[in-house]
């Protein structure tokens, strides 16, 4: 039951991200709903569940991208979840302000890491300055909503996360 609930959440995030990329962009940049979901799951779920979600959501982002890397986002999201697992006891990540701050910082770091990976492994520069400037802001604005939705789902559905 927990597995099926997790699958539903996984595909729901995938569909929402896909719908956003087709219908709702800001200066051509889509708010990264998957990133916000990974961050939220890392805060509220058990570590192993969060690592699994992070890895497979990263695989989805690699599948959908046009970049030459495959596995880049899976690695970055997995590392991100692990880092949050290590630091979440020291910081309060349930408040909206801390979530926004965390989202901005981790967005920038993940984009830089992806850029470095792409330059090292495929010598291609996949990201533009526009993405570095706009996507973290969009993710930060989205983060509190996604977090509250996942918390709500966790309270309502017994076998979840």
């Amino acid at each position: 039951m927990k597995f099926f609930n997790s699958l539903i959440v996984y595909f729901a995030a995938v569909v929402v991200y896909w719908w956003f990329s087709l219908n709702f962009t800001v200066f051509g940049i889509t708010p990264n709903v998957v990133f916000a979901c990974v961050l939220s799951i890392a805060v509220i779920a058990t570590p192993v569940t969060a690592l699994t979600f992070g890895f497979f959501w990263g695989i989805y982002m690699d599948l959908m991208g046009t970049s030459a890397l495959f596995g880049g986002w899976a690695l970055i999201y997995t590392l991100m979840v692990y880092i949050i697992y290590l630091i979440k006891k020291q910081f309060d990540m349930t408040g909206a302000f801390s979530q926004i701050l965390l989202s901005v910082v981790l967005s920038e770091i993940s984009l830089v890491c992806y850029q470095i990976l792409s330059l090292i492994l495929s010598k291609i520069n996949p990201l533009s300055l526009k993405i570095f400037l706009i996507e973290p802001v969009l993710n930060a604005l989205l983060m509190p909503f996604v977090f509250s939705i996942l918390v709500f789902i966790r309270k309502k559905i017994r076998y979840f996360l």
Binding site: T52, F55, G71, G72, A74, V81, Y82
Partner: peptide, 26 residues
């Protein structure tokens, strides 16, 4: 358990990155 899971997923991701992915994956 968490550490083993993290290492496992990170290894898989690194393998996907480093080794050329098979034609079927592409």
């Amino acid at each position: 358990v968490v550490n083993y899971a993290a290492v496992f997923f990170i290894s898989i991701a690194c393998l996907l990155l480093i080794f050329p992915s098979a034609g079927i994956v592409h």
